[in-house]
Design a protein around this nucleic acid. Sequence first.
DNA 1: GCCGTTTTCGGCCCGACTGTTTTCAGTCG
Length: 571
Amino acid sequence: MRNLEVADIFDDIADFLELKNENPFRIRAYRRASQNIKSLNEDIEEILKRDGLLEILGIGKDLALKIKEIITEGRLKYLEELKREFPEGLAEIMNIPNIGPKTAKLLYEKLNIRDIDTLEEYAKAHRLSSLPGIREKTEENILKGIELVRRGRERMSLGIALPLAEKIINDLKDSSGIKRITYAGSLRRMKETIRDIDILVSSNSPNIIMDNFVKLPVVKEIISKGKTKSSILTKEGIQVDIRVVKPDSYGAAMVYFTGSKAHNIRIRELANKKGFKINEYGVFRKSDGKKIAGNEEIGVYNAIGLPYIEPELREDQDEIEAAINGRLPDILKLEDIKSDLHIHTKYSDGANSLKKIIDACKELGYEYIAICDHSKSLKVAGGLSEKDLMKQVGQIRKFNKISKDIKILAGSEVDILDDGSLDFDGDILKELDLVVASIHTGFKQAREKLTYRILKAMENKYVNVISHPTGRLMGARDAYELNLDRIFKQAADTNTAIEINAFPQRLDLTDINCKRAREFNVNFAIGTDTHSLPQLNYIRFGVAVARRGWIEAGSILNALSFKEFLKRIKK
DNA sequence: GCCGTTTTCGGCCCGACTGTTTTCAGTCG
C-alpha cells in the first residue's frame, strides 16, 4: 500500500506551491488529490495496474502521470525541483499556527530564517518586528505557536474527544439564551481521531455565550474571542472552537461546521450550478438573494436537490454522487444494535463478574450478548483452560434457564495459533454458541503467513467471527500486514463475520476497510471488547465505524434479532 | 490542475477573527 506515500508527496507539492504564491486552484487540486488518495479503499498500485487512476476523483491526466512516476521510479522529479527552490524547514515553519505561506516566505526572504529554532531565537530577541505587518503581539503568538508545534498537536482518539465535548456542552447548556447546542466537525463525523473540538450553538444573544465559554473550568488559555466565534485551549492542550448563530441559521451552520471541508466545497459547487449560494447562514437564491433554507440541515440538502446525507458519510468519498443517483446506503443506527458480541469477564482478564455484566447489559436493553473470554494459550490475559471454560458455559446455561429478558451466548475469544489452528479442539468449540477467533501472537510475521493463519482459521467450521482482524492499537502498534481482499473473500465464502472492534484504540476494522469489505458482502460483528463495565458504552464507537464504512443494519450480526442471528451464523 | 445539465475554456466555496493596519492581508476552518 503506497497510497500514503503518494498523498504525502502531493501535499508537499501543495506546500511548495503556496510558498511560490501559485494559482490557489492549482494548489487546491493537489490538496484534494492528496485527500482523496488517502481515503481510497483500494491499493493505488492495483489501481494503476488496472489503468484506473483517472476514475479517482480529482485525478486528471497530469496527476495520473505523476502517480505513475512515483510508483515506478520511487520518486517525483517535480517535487525534487521544488525542493531545490526552498529549504525544507519552511514546510515545518508553516506548521506553526498562524504562520502560512506568506509569512514563512517573508521570514525566509528578509531574514533568511529556514528552521524553527532560528525563528524562535529571532522572536525572543524581538528581531522580527522589523518586518512589515509583524509587531510584538505577532512575535508572542509565534512563540506560543512554536511551543504548540513542539508539544505535538497530536490528534486524540474519539474515546477522549467525545466525552470531553459532551462535558463542555453539559457545562454550557444552561447558559441563558442557548436554544440548541451540539458538537460538529470531525467529531460529529465520528472520525477515529480528532484534532479540535467544534461546538455549535444557536442563540439570539451570542455575547453571553462567548463570555460563559471562555470562563469554563476546562479553559487554560483563550486563543481568540470574537462576537460569534471563539477558541480556547483546555488544560489538556486541546483546542475547542465555538460558534454561535441565529436559530434560523442553525441547520446551515450545522452543515458548514460538520464538514468535511471537501464535502462542503462539493455541495457549494453544486449549489452554484443550480443558481444558489450556500454559506453558514443558509441557502440563498443568487437572482434575488432570498434565503430559501437554513433552519434545519435536511432543508439545506433538499434545497439543492439532494436527500439528507448522514454526517459520517460527509467525506466527499462518493456520497454526493450516491445522493444524486439515489443510492445512498441506509446506514446502521445505534438503535439497531441488539447485542454486544465481545465481552470479557473475571474468568479471564475482565474486571467484572458474569452477573454484573449481565445486569449492565439488561440495562442497555440488549436482547442477547456474547461472553468471550480468552483461551488457554493467552496466559498474560488469564486465558481459560478447557475445564474453566466448561464451568463458565455451565453457569451461562443455568442463567439462560431462569432469564427471560436477555439471552447469554457462551462464547470464547480463541487464539489463532501459529499454524492457523485454534487454541481449543473441535470437541470444546462445538459446545460454544459463538466462537470469536483472533491473533495475539506473531504480529511481526510476514504478510503471507499472517494472512494464511486467518484464512485457515476461517475454514474452521466452528469459527463465527474474526476479531480485531488487523491487530492495530492506535498510538502503540500498527496494523499488521495482511492481504485483506483475500480475507474478505474468504469471510464471504465461509460465512465468517469480520469484527468491528469498538475499543477506541482499536476501531479495527477501520472505516475505510469496512467500505472495502462491504463490496465483498461480508457480515460484520460489532464487539466492545469490554474489560470493565463502562466500556460497554464503547458500542457507539463501533457503530460509528460501521456508519462511516457505509454498512447497513442487514449485514451487522448484532443488529439482527436473536432468532435471525442464530440462522445467520450457521456455517 | 481538474472538470463539464454553463462541456474543451473559464470557471473553481465562503466568511470570521487577529494584528496590523487607516481599509486590509493573512490565516483558519
